[in-house]
Design a protein around this nucleic acid. Structure first.
Lengths: 238, 238
DNA sequence: ACGGATTAAATGGTTCGACCATTCCTATTG
DNA sequence: CAATAGGAATGGTCGAACCATTTAATCCGT
């Protein structure tokens, strides 16, 4: 019902004041805060305490700290990465199995594809087709280039997430994908057939997105992700 | 392609070492780290620098710091709150609108219901029906009890997430739900009709889950969540 | 011998002053 | 005029001291 009220800590007070200034718009993204030595005077605190506050704000993704003269604490635009890395930490901490990650990913990728199919503009489609071209190139180069192929595969899915315009999908997709990717090298003995199958999947997805067929995009994306799970087979129980 | 390599910072090195120890299991939740004065000797650094590292770990949600003798840095169980507060920050930063959250939630809840329909055991169904009973009670008590009704609603969705057996759904659902719930009071003028509609939705979902009809469960859950979005109407674009 | 009050020790929180490392600007010099 | 050297501002680190909080042991009165 209530939250712990250990407001005794001075640095916490400093954090809240600066955070409030940022969220209220008094401090705009790109603005540079005064130097530590000036801030310490303003807050009437010691430099060490002030630096602890800055450390927290930096970790929250609200500021970025640059070195040298003219450096200092710069207000960041968006703490998107922070949520992503937080989710990443949670996934690793809870030791979420590959099976669970894969299952969740199937849903997310499917929904992303379906929404993207509804919202993709001509420029988006053009971008996707360029990426597809890259993928085809790496497929033709053979399994030695599976790493590059996977990289393009990732970019395509990221592009789809971006097309939705919903940051939630972007963040969640990235966290899930990063954690799954750790298993690729460990589990997959790549074959030319797998590269071809995956390339074909990507083609199908992009085609459905281009045509605005959201159901078909969902289905193709689902199949695409599911294929990875099948590749990994019984070894999926990490 | 590469990440910034400002590894110059000593406290960052300390953070990574402790984080690694926690994630690898060398440090278990509940364990207490050595005192700051001991840690500073181990890492051969100053206390100020060490404290900056602890501040980061605390902000990441990996440790909790207690005062007094016998206090110190205790490894926490799960950094879920950190993700929630990160999302909260993103919302207040207006990087994520309620519409975005709602859209994402529709997908997650739908998938959760569908999977739960496949995996629910008789005990799970029994539990759901008990919760449904509670919901009916609060519905009959009228709009003054909307808060309690929403609480039961939340418990039902949490139960569904648990039935999936997939921690990703549990975690993501909670993070999204916590952040959406804050806006209920702000946006919703509850009416008896809304309570009834929602109760009926919950009944439909549970019935579909009980019968193992995953498609129907997905559809009903989707409609249920969508109804909330409609209630909030145009005000959703916070 | 028991129980409450007092004291002591351990620990996190804060402060101060100093110095180092990096970066940018400026003045010097060829 | 350009390359270089130096200086100043700024974040990063260090060490020692002191304060505040908490726990446990100790002491004292009954």
């Amino acid at each position: 019902m209530f939250r712990a009220a250990k407001q005794n800590r001075i640095f916490q007070d400093v954090v809240e004041q600066i955070e409030e200034a940022i969220l209220s718009g008094q401090l705009q993204p790109g603005d540079t805060l005064p130097s530590e030595r000036d801030l310490k005077d303003m807050f009437q605190t010691s430099r060490g305490t002030l630096r602890e506050a800055l450390r927290v704000l930096e970790q929250k993704g609200l500021i970025e700290i640059k070195l040298g003269v003219g450096g200092g604490s710069v207000v960041k635009a968006a703490p998107l990465e922070q949520v992503c890395s937080g989710l990443d930490l949670l996934i690793r901490f809870q030791k979420i199995s590959l099976r669970h990650l894969a299952e969740f990913r199937e849903d997310v990728e499917s929904s992303v594809a379906a929404i993207a199919a509804q919202r993709a503009g001509s420029e988006d489609v053009h971008n996707l087709e360029d990426l597809l071209e890259d993928a085809r190139g790496y497929r033709d180069l053979g399994v030695d280039y599976w790493r590059e192929f996977v990289e393009v595969d990732k970019k395509i899915h990221q592009a789809l997430a971006s097309i939705t315009g919903n940051p939630m999908y972007i963040v969640v997709h990235q966290a899930v994908h990063d954690n799954i990717q750790r298993y690729y090298e460990q589990f997959l003995p790549w074959t030319p057939e797998m590269l071809s199958e995956n390339y074909q999947d990507l083609c199908d997805i992009v085609r459905a997105v281009k045509a605005g067929h959201n159901d078909k995009a969902r289905e193709k994306a689902h199949r695409h992700v599911q294929r990875f799970s099948e590749y990994m087979g019984s070894r999926i129980d990490g």
